[in-house]
Design a protein around this nucleic acid. Structure first.
Lengths: 207, 207
DNA sequence: TTCTTTCTCCAACGTTTGATGGAACATCCT
DNA sequence: AGGATGTTCCATCAAACGTTGGAGAAAGAA
């Protein structure tokens, strides 16, 4: 008894999986309103009605995309956490920034979708209202900023949000910032990591 | 011989001014694609064709809005700069964060529009490609991170971008983050300032 | 007054949008 | 074989979209 999303994630080559993957990219590039069902269908190479057969309305597909992205994010976070556990804080942050940045640069639509969701006004009571706080608490614990995952002080959650957003910003804004600095991708990625470490590490360590 | 934008900025009560002000808000809330010409016209209380009489196509109106916002931002920056000049760096940052945050909380559409512009994909060679780098250089100089306004190292510009974005994020994401933390507006504003200072000041001072 | 210019709205246009119904094809079970 | 089920495309819909032309009101100049 698998949900459509579980099926699509398990078998990315299936029609459901291909649509989901493409919808992620297109929604990520143009936002909810900027992306049309026809754009997505054309990108997959199918008719729009086939999409409706598999995912229903546009808003349902979008919801699935957002959820899909957060599953990935959660998995990646668990992987990072496993590697940095037990090390001293500056090392933990150094490694976490490297790994997270590398991962998001490979999947920039994740950052796009997350930021669109935070800042856009499509906000009508969503699954994100549960998943984001959970993710934030996990990161707070992983950074050693709290002892109890289930009771993270608000000010600590704010700091975690600041960290998450700083990373997403540089990924999402790549095309704008890079053309502003006229750097190639590799150099830009290097500067992003350097800048993030320059700003974030002192805040949490030199005290 | 004033441009339409200059006229609208000088006389906010004129039809041009009222349309511009409302378009700022609506574009800021829903983004370029999410906002419709009819929504804006209705919010002003006029017919859509009157809007076309004053501002032309939707994209032209949007361009005017973006430019308008950046004029405001530039003015505010100059005001901040005047006040913090000559003080020690930690004080400068403390005051600048307070002033900027207060101002943007009063005009949240500014942060929305700026972030939409960075992250969205409506990017077809715009005035922003000139104004943003200029703004970044001004801030870098104001923070004492460079000696020559016309030759700011790339890594310094990256740091300034990180600072700017951190602030915009908390303003734009207010509705999402606030409902996540279940705080009222005043408490949230206080936490934003505290968090920004916690993260940003050590990075640029404790070295 | 009358003429001219500026402004505003109404009605409508062509297009794109999200969405649906049904025919055609494919796959599988018996 | 034949029928049931699952999948895909074509044609099409109504609504919403950006945009336009033209009628008429408002304001100013003569």
């Amino acid at each position: 008894m698998a949900t459509p999303l579980e099926k699509a994630r398990k078998d990315p080559e299936s029609m459901k999986g291909r649509i989901l993957k493409t919808a992620r990219r297109v929604f990520g590039e143009y936002g909810y309103h900027g992306a049309t069902t026809r754009m997505i269908a054309e990108a997959v190479g199918i008719d729009a009605s086939t999409m409706y057969y598999h995912w229903g309305e546009k808003s349902d597909l979008y919801e699935a995309v957002v959820l899909d992205v957060h599953y990935d994010l959660k998995e990646k976070l668990a992987e990072v956490e496993r590697i940095i556990r037990g090390r001293p804080l500056p090392d933990r942050m150094d490694i976490a920034i490297d790994m997270t940045t590398d991962y998001l640069f490979e999947h920039p639509e994740i950052s796009n979708l997350v930021l669109f969701r935070y800042f856009g006004k499509t906000r009508d009571e969503s699954v994100l209202d549960i998943y984001v706080p959970e993710l934030v608490s996990d990161i707070a614990f992983s950074m050693g900023l709290c002892d109890d995952k289930n009771n993270v002080p608000k000010i600590v959650r704010m700091r975690v949000l600041a960290v998450m957003n700083s990373i997403h910003n540089f990924i999402s804004g790549e095309s704008f910032f890079r053309s502003m600095l006229s750097e190639d991708r590799a150099q830009y990625m290097g500067m992003v990591k350097e800048t993030l470490k320059y700003i974030l590490i002192p805040a949490f360590t030199y005290r």
